[in-house]
Amino acid sequence: MSVQSSGANKQKNRNYLFEISFLRAFACMAVVGVHVTATHYYANAQTWHWFTYFINQVGRFGTTIFAVLSGFLLFYQVRKRGFDTKKFITSRFSKILLPFLIWSFAYRYMVFHYDGLEFQGLGAELQRLLLGESFYHLYFIAIVVQFYFVFPLLQKIVRSKILMIVFALISLVISYKLFGFNPGVEGALGAFFASKTFMPIWLFYFAFGGVLAYFWEEIVGFATKRPWQMLVLALVVSAGAVVEYRITGQVSNRRLTNLINLPLLCIATIGMYPLLTKLTVIKKPLMVIGQYSMGIYLVHPMTLYLMVEYLPNSVWTVGNIPLLFLAVMVIGVVFIRLLQFIPLSGYVIPVPKIKKARPAQDASAEGRLRSA
């Protein structure tokens, strides 16, 4: 095989970014960890154990990483393929907005059915839908949808590495200034500006995703050559999070320290890819979780809700947390896999397709690990 042919095959293999799927898997597991431990907390007279509190607080990196990934995927596609307005609208509607609407109605129906809530009027229900308040995890999808409204303009302005850095710095200032923002406005609009659903609070994380997209080759080349150093960096960031919540108490996924922690943690996790995927027993589950992460994110709160409804309270012990976590993940994966046999299921839960012909990239990753 010629050098040119080999290079072409390697580029083809990069159509699916396995490091990003790896990062997505960790974000997904972190979010599920937060919600499993929170469910344990409410099922046990609202008391924390040090282990469940640790998982709950450290896991709060997860949602913010998803914001980074959302920005990355949009900017990376524009960088590689350009921007097609019609394709952007149809793709975002079918892959994000439509599943968001379907699951919002599903969760609202579930709450009506089990909690006996009454319909609060069309206006109130529409407001709840738009703010992602149909259930506790859907607010993040509402944030992403808001970013979609500004992205077509952003991608026209941010078309180079320098402009991306400028945009990231401006976004950093905006996200910093809006921490604890109180607009002083009454009514629904003021509540929206002050809520966690207000997208500009999250703007830096979308922007950092753009930085990852425009500097992808440089970041991957640097980080994956230093997997052990990246592992240490991830542990240091995590230890810092432990110190923070021990000092300040419960922390938010929008806390100011995340403006520093998240870029470091994302780069560190990407760099650990060739190290943590050497073993098939680790690699395959992480790749499946990464591929199904959107579906798991949408499904897992319903799984937990039904588990609380039908399982005895004696199940919700600290010792059972790992098993409950595993059960939620497995149920999510199995449900998504079965759903894929149904026509048009991609409009309910979108699942990205993994390209074949992976060997060249695997060899490259293993080579980077051996040289580290």
Rank of each mutant, 00 (worst) to 15 (best):
L138R: 00
V111I: 15
I165Y: 04
M164G: 04
L97I: 14
K80P: 00
Q127M: 14
S70R: 03
G82H: 09
A168N: 08
E125V: 03
F140I: 00
Y139S: 05
V111E: 04
L126W: 12
F100Y: 13
Y109K: 06
L122A: 15
F54W: 14
T47C: 06
W48A: 04
F83E: 07
L117S: 12
V173A: 15
L126A: 15
A142D: 01
L163T: 10
V68R: 02
Y76E: 10
S134E: 10
H113E: 11
L154R: 08
G132H: 01
Q127E: 13
I141G: 00
L74W: 00
I157M: 09
V68H: 04
Q46M: 12
F179H: 13
Y148C: 08
T47G: 12
Q127N: 15
F147N: 02
F66G: 00
T63N: 07
L73N: 09
Y176H: 14
S134L: 01
I157W: 11
V144I: 15
L74C: 06
G116L: 09
R159Q: 14
L101R: 03
S160Y: 09
S134M: 10
V68W: 00
W48D: 06
R92Q: 08
K161T: 08
V166E: 08
P183G: 14
F105M: 13
F75V: 01
F51A: 15
F75G: 04
F119P: 11
Y139V: 04
G116W: 01
S175A: 08
L130G: 02
Y53Q: 11
V68Y: 01
L154N: 04
L130M: 09
P152L: 11
Q127P: 00
F112I: 11
I143A: 05
G71I: 01
A106C: 11
Q77K: 15
L169I: 13
Y109I: 09
S94E: 05
G59Y: 02
F93K: 05
K161A: 09
I174W: 03
V78M: 07
D84Q: 14
F151G: 02
L178G: 03
F100P: 01
L73S: 13
S70T: 09
N56D: 12
G132R: 00
T52S: 15
F181G: 05
